[in-house]
C-alpha cells in the first residue's frame, strides 16, 4: 500500500492504495467518479479518457503508483452545478449523444484539443477523437459539436 497524493478535479487529494491499481479503478472505486468508463482495458477505445496534466490519457493504462503530484481531471469537473460547459451543451444541442458510454471520454478529448488548439479544422478534430471509439453516432454530430464549441469560445474571446 502507498499513500498517494495528487490533484483531482482541482482539489488536492490523498488516498491509500496499492501502487498497481489502474487510475480508472482508483477514480471509480476510491473516489466514486464513475463518469470515467471502461470499454477495453487496453487503451484502444478511449472511454476511460481523463486529463492528466491537461493532456488526454487513457486512465486504464496509468497506474496509481505513477501518479504522485499529477493533476487529474475527469468529466465530473466540467459542469458547474447545472451550468454545462459549452462542449457539453453543444453535444446535447447537436445530437452528439446516443448511448452516452463514450461521451465522457469524447468530451475530454475534445476539451484537451480545444485547450491546445482553439481553432481546429475538421482533420484535426478527427485526429483528436480518433482514439475515442463510438459505435452509435458515426461521429458526425460529435464533430459538429466540437466545431461549434470552438467557434463559440473564439467569438467570446474576441
Amino acid at each position: 500500500m502507498i499513500n498517494l497524493k495528487f490533484k483531482l478535479n482541482g482539489e488536492k487529494v490523498s488516498v491509500k492504495t496499492e501502487a498497481g491499481v489502474r487510475l480508472i479503478d482508483l477514480l471509480r472505486n476510491n473516489f466514486g467518479l464513475t463518469g470515467t468508463k471502461e470499454g477495453c482495458g487496453v487503451g484502444e477505445c478511449g472511454a476511460c479518457t481523463v486529463l492528466m496534466n491537461k493532456k488526454a490519457v487513457n486512465s486504464c493504462l496509468v497506474l496509481a503508483g505513477q501518479l504522485a503530484g499529477a493533476s487529474i481531471e475527469t468529466i465530473e469537473s466540467l459542469a458547474e452545478g447545472e451550468m454545462l460547459h459549452p462542449l457539453q451543451r453543444n453535444f446535447l444541442e447537436h445530437g452528439a449523444v446516443q448511448c452516452g458510454y463514450c461521451t465522457p471520454g469524447m468530451i475530454l478529448s475534445a476539451y484537451a484539443l480545444l485547450d491546445e488548439n482553439p481553432s481546429p479544422d475538421e482533420e484535426e478534430i478527427k485526429e483528436a477523437i480518433a482514439g475515442n471509439l463510438c459505435r452509435c453516432t458515426g461521429y458526425k454530430q460529435i464533430m459538429d459539436s466540437i466545431k461549434a464549441t470552438a467557434d463559440e469560445l473564439n467569438s467570446k474571446n474576441k
Partner: peptide, 14 residues
C-alpha cells in the same frame, strides 16, 4: 435528449 444532461456530465449510471 431526455437523458442528455446525465450523459454529458458523467452522472448517468450505467
Amino acid at each position: 435528449r431526455e437523458d442528455g444532461f446525465e450523459k454529458v456530465t458523467g452522472s448517468a449510471k450505467f
